[in-house]
Design a binder for these strands. Structure first.
Lengths: 336, 336
DNA sequence: CTGTTAGCGCATTCAA
DNA sequence: TTGAATGCGCTAACAG
């Protein structure tokens, strides 16, 4: 693979001149520029960004750390990140943590080693340590989708507490009184915030909160199944299920069906996050739809602002609006 | 940010010794190792992979280039790639081409600049040039999901022609005679292969091929809508629709519904690729399901074998089996 | 077991 | 407008 020196030799100039031509820095006479460009073309020379990055202390590479790229919410978010990054000439490395703090820690080390210019982090837990780690290494971070304990960082998310409050209110208005809350890992802010919103709505309605009806499990179909199964064992049986995200909803729904229950005739169900293709075919779930693509974009904008030092010195906290979409999965509580 | 020299100074050894400790190369006395490790911890030193990569001519970074990470087929495939890569200590950069050869070309240049160790490519077209480009730069490639014109590369895919043949046979066996083929971009091998399979099945059944019923469009819901609309304008109206992928199926399905047609009562529909969440809630589409996750894994294995030189010198072509799953979207042709 | 020398490919600084 | 020297942080090769 040819280097800048090979090009220089062939064009009969110095490496520095070639560098200037490539980066459009400094002034170059049209003639030599032409010669250099010819040499570049003849050799099929492609600059080595490693060397450049080493020298410049900037890699033009960012990272997006999510729990599972397979979840359409994160996929869409990732696409928003990608598109915004590409527009500015940045590449993006993706990492999945599978909600494991240990895995996340490993990933972050690898990213620091690679000297990525910035990180978009959907934290696996609300501990501030991972963010602090990146900051210690002078790597700008934007926290996405989830909160992190008292810690000054740029962040982009929706108001999970409010969304959950609204969904719960919806169920209450439909006459439901026993509502099972199937939430995510307790250490994840969206999971706890959604529980908080649920509690607030119940409290406000003067309905006793039954701890046995509040579950924490994995943000996965399997987690949803397990929690639904446990919830079904409660007596009296809940008449409504609040799934904290789409994956939980799917698993729970399957479990309900297998138990011979119909949604919404026998039990109602509400959840967070759209299921893109499903919605297009047969809109079914009543959801709080978060603007995933836009979240990714906005987060990337914040990060780029930091990188260009055009950001305000204070950290910014962007709370995007969600949309509550009522569909068939929620119906009136059955009158026993 | 501290360097290997800072660590060396603090530990009272040479940089080389620190390097040896970090990379577990060479023999180090327990004592000095301890001192070095202490210094590393005290300084919070993290090795700079850029410098290492520059020196070693290897980046431990790979790239996956797909058309659209938002398509669950590619998302799942990406996850397979990721998991296999992580197990071997590689990071993966993702790129979307949106089926544009121009965008793809740009992306590949950026990847060569970054000196990625290898590329997994879902080519935007069947031209061999992009693969040749990478090979010229000594970057191993594995072609995924699609074929590339007479070109020796490792590749992993399913047999699209056969899958399409089977799906078409299924429709024929159900009595359909006018089957619209809604395919992808003509330059993409999966699109043309699926048309080929469709033609073979029809020919074998002694049914005339009606060119007006064969469409090429974007592998997107919008493409599906447009093609379905055009197909519905044909007289007599087709009784069955073959969508070449899940996105086309979604769009076409919407268009059919809006035209007041019921699936499968009025028209049948078959397609390629599962729609993960949809399937879990309400299995509906008759599909050829390709093992996306496994395809990603296998491709990564081939690539890693190349990188470790444990691969056979000849290129390997892995054709994975698909599964034909019959569901509700396909039914008997209506007896007019 | 440890250190020295040299260079990976590029861009900044200064000089011409 | 152009070039030479220098160093980014690391490791291979050799020496001791």
């Amino acid at each position: 693979m040819s280097t800048i020196h090979d090009v220089a030799k062939r064009a009969g100039v110095s490496a520095m001149t070639v560098s200037r031509v490539i980066n459009r820095s400094g002034a170059i006479s049209p003639k030599t520029r032409e010669r250099v460009e010819a040499a570049i073309a003849e050799l099929g020379y492609v600059p080595n960004t490693l060397a450049r990055s080493l020298r410049m202390k900037a890699t033009q590479t960012l990272a997006l750390v999510v729990s599972d790229i397979t979840n359409p919410f994160f996929t869409t978010l990732a696409r928003g990140v990608q598109d915004a990054a590409r527009a500015e000439g940045f590449n993006v490395i993706f990492c999945n943590t599978d909600e494991s703090e240990a895995v996340q820690a490993e990933q972050l080390v690898a990213l620091v080693q690679k000297r990525v210019d910035g990180v978009l982090l959907v934290p696996a837990a609300s501990s501030a340590e991972p963010v602090a780690y990146l900051k210690r290494h002078k790597i700008p971070v934007v926290v996405l989708d989830r909160r992190v304990e008292d810690c000054l960082v740029d962040s982009v998310r929706c108001d999970s507490e409010l969304g959950a409050y609204r969904l719960t209110r919806l169920l209450l208005d439909l006459g439901h009184r026993r509502i099972a809350m199937l939430s995510g890992p307790a250490r994840v802010s969206t999971a706890s915030d959604r529980v908080a919103g649920y509690r607030r709505a119940l409290a406000e309605a003067g309905i006793a909160i039954v701890p046995e009806l509040i579950f924490h499990g994995a943000y996965s179909p399997a987690g949803g199944r397990q929690m639904a199964q446990a919830a079904l064992a409660c007596t009296p049986r809940p008449t409504a299920f609040f799934a904290a995200n789409n994956f939980i909803a799917i698993g729970a729904y399957q479990q309900l069906r297998e138990a011979g229950l119909r949604v919404p005739e026998d039990v109602s169900m509400v959840t967070f996050d759209e299921m893109p293709l499903t919605t297009l075919i047969e809109p079914f779930f009543t959801v709080v739809a978060q603007p995933a693509y836009e979240m990714g974009q906005r987060a990337m904008q914040l990060l780029l602002a930091r990188l260009n030092n055009t950001a305000s010195s204070e950290c910014e906290e962007v709370i995007l609006p969600f949309e509550l979409i009522v569909r068939r999965s929620s119906g009136p509580a059955p009158t026993t």
